[in-house]
Design a protein around this nucleic acid. Structure first.
Length: 214
DNA sequence: CACCAGGCAAGTA
DNA sequence: TACTTGCATGGT
């Protein structure tokens, strides 16, 4: 079947309006948040980012100079702090050696080259890479996360074992290739996931209830 | 108490 | 390729 991708977006936007993501003041903060929020509640990420801000640590030079142990302490509330501190350190090292410690240089890469570059960094998988491409790079790339997969399977628009890239293609092939549209759609899916779709029960207030299977 | 949250890497078969 | 496990905090 051909899922009502555009109609679902219209219903979500009607319900909640524009979300204006990503909640970050800079590309670097966005990238840090993308790593910190992996399998982690955003409220915990906010605490970690506050720690970094109060220590003036959201800058490439500061992240280069601090120790991995110090960084791990700052981001402790976000969980997996040893792994994530190592990932952030490796990211900054790579930006230093290959891009002169400049995000401007990094983001000059063409989209598919930039995606491959990000995916080559340990700790950056498809969702994190695509989040950075969309929300820090402004590229028309669709982000697929656990909420996206859940709402699609609940509505029986995909089988449970469909791969990441195929889910992304479901959106990119049924919508205009527009960065702002993909930005809002992903943000609205997260809003949906945080609010509904937590149980299998039908909810009267769900903006997508009209699309649920009978 | 158990379960979950805006994943990913590494190991095994 | 398909599955399993470790990583860790804070809220419900």
């Amino acid at each position: 079947m051909n899922p009502p991708i555009q109609e679902a977006y219209d219903a979500l936007l009607e319900k909640w309006g524009a979300q204006h993501w990503w909640p970050a003041e800079s590309r670097l903060e966005m990238m840090l948040g993308a790593i910190l929020t992996q399998n982690t509640a955003w409220t915990n990420v906010e605490k970690a980012l506050e720690n970094l801000k109060s220590n003036q640590a959201i800058s490439l030079p500061a992240l280069t100079e601090c120790t991995r142990q110090q960084l791990a302490e700052w981001i402790r509330p976000a969980g997996y702090f040893n792994q994530k501190a190592a990932y952030i350190k490796m990211m900054v090292d790579r930006i230093k050696t290959a891009f002169d410690l400049s995000l401007d240089h990094l983001f000059k890469l063409e989209t598919s080259d930039l995606r491959n570059e990000l995916l080559s960094w340990k700790g950056i998988g498809p969702e994190t890479a695509d989040s950075i491409l969309l929300y820090a790079g402004g590229r028309p790339v669709f982000v697929v996360d656990a909420y996206t997969r859940r709402f699609l399977t609940r509505h029986e628009w995909i089988d449970e074992r469909v791969r990441y890239d195929e889910i992304a293609r479901l959106f990119t092939s049924n919508l205009p290739l527009n960065t702002q549209l993909f930005n809002e759609y992903h943000a609205l899916i997260v809003q949906l996931g945080k609010t509904f779709c937590k149980t299998r029960s039908r909810c009267e207030a769900c903006p997508l209830r009209a699309f649920l299977p009978s």
